[in-house]
Design a protein around this nucleic acid. Structure first.
Length: 316
DNA sequence: TTCCAGGGGTAGA
DNA sequence: TCTACCCATGGA
């Protein structure tokens, strides 16, 4: 299934019948954070990808729509004229599978959505449920940290500054971030007080004292994984819930300003006093292990369902 | 100038 | 479990 096209190297990846590329890419704001580049008009998601042999530029799309194979085009890097070696393709496919959650089984969530009725019963036909991820847990953790206590515009700036500062051709590794140090992250990266957290995290990983990638293969309970995440300085309840969701566990809701304003507006429009977080979380209690995903669909289907709304929301 | 944004850590009640 | 306070930064 390997073919040459405009000097690129192209392969396709089989997906589950309910896999929807656009719904996955637009699932939340990651697609507009560096080094991702998303073009809604063409439906192509691009980013540099770090392989064993170096960095290549990856373009992803699903030209024939839901359930059809995903196209992976690779440009640049060593051997660009002769095609990518078989072993390197395995790396590309592994990263793409992680980013797009190709293997994520949504049957349980979609069954619950159909049972719940409107507006949730539209989630299956919209292919909602797979959240866009980074190639590594490390990149996801860094990006979640960049969303804390800042506006979305600040998140985009912090991530872009980080990629630019390390001069890495792809998203920086932990050791590249550690080399920058808290000082430059703070002054040039504009990471503020988060700079200390990011630098310390990168150093722990570089020193081999923390293995974030192991979270992907976690076989223990969600509670144990949550405790492990929460142990990382700088990652509190919101970050823990966000990362659990990216790791496919939706028991918890990431309570932040988006959650509070959305739930208050939709479910407590006449309340004079803002309900407590606990009260607002109860709105989704019946979803049990799907709480986080159900809440996010509620937001997504009302504010994020068209491209303009997502982009305006994402660029605020 | 003040407030707030996809919060976290800490102390004290 | 909750509240209060501090932490940085940029935009409205």
């Amino acid at each position: 299934m390997c073919a040459e096209r405009r000097g690129e190297r192209l392969r396709t990846l089989e997906v589950l019948p309910d896999f929807d590329f656009r719904a996955t890419v637009w699932s939340h704001g990651w697609c507009v954070l560096a080094p991702f580049r998303w073009e809604p008009e063409t439906g192509v998601l691009e980013r540099p990808l770090r392989l064993r042999s170096g960095v290549v530029n990856l373009s992803l799309s699903q030209p024939n729509g839901r359930g059809a194979p995903v196209e992976m085009a690779v440009a640049g890097g060593r051997g660009s004229r002769s095609g990518l070696a078989e072993g390197l393709w395995a790396g590309v496919e592994r990263d793409v599978a992680r980013m797009l959650q190709i293997d994520r089984d949504l049957a349980g969530f979609h069954a619950a959505c159909l049972e719940a009725g409107s507006p949730f019963d539209r989630a299956p036909e919209q292919g909602f449920g797979r959240l866009l991820r980074s190639p590594t847990v490390f990149e996801d953790v860094v990006k979640v940290l960049a969303t804390t206590n800042t506006a979305w515009s600040g998140t985009k700036a912090m991530v872009a500054n980080l990629v630019r500062l390390t001069k890495a051709p792809a998203f920086p590794t932990a050791s590249e971030v550690a080399d920058l140090g808290a000082g430059r992250l703070r002054t040039e990266g504009r990471w503020g007080y988060r700079a200390e957290y990011l630098a310390a995290l990168a150093q722990l990983i570089t020193d081999g004292e923390l293995d974030l990638e192991a979270w992907d293969l976690w076989e223990g309970t969600t509670e144990d994984l949550a405790a492990e995440i929460h142990r990382v300085p700088g990652l509190g309840p919101y970050s823990t819930a966000s990362l659990l969701g990216l790791l496919g566990r939706f028991d918890r809701i990431a309570v932040d300003s988006v959650f509070r304003s959305f739930v208050r507006r939709r479910y407590f429009p006449k309340a004079r006093k803002s309900p407590t977080d606990r009260r607002m979380e109860k709105v989704y209690a019946r979803w049990r292990e799907w709480r986080g995903l159900a809440y996010w669909y509620d937001v997504w289907s009302s504010d994020y369902e068209d491209a303009d709304a997502l982009e305006s929301s994402a660029s605020k």
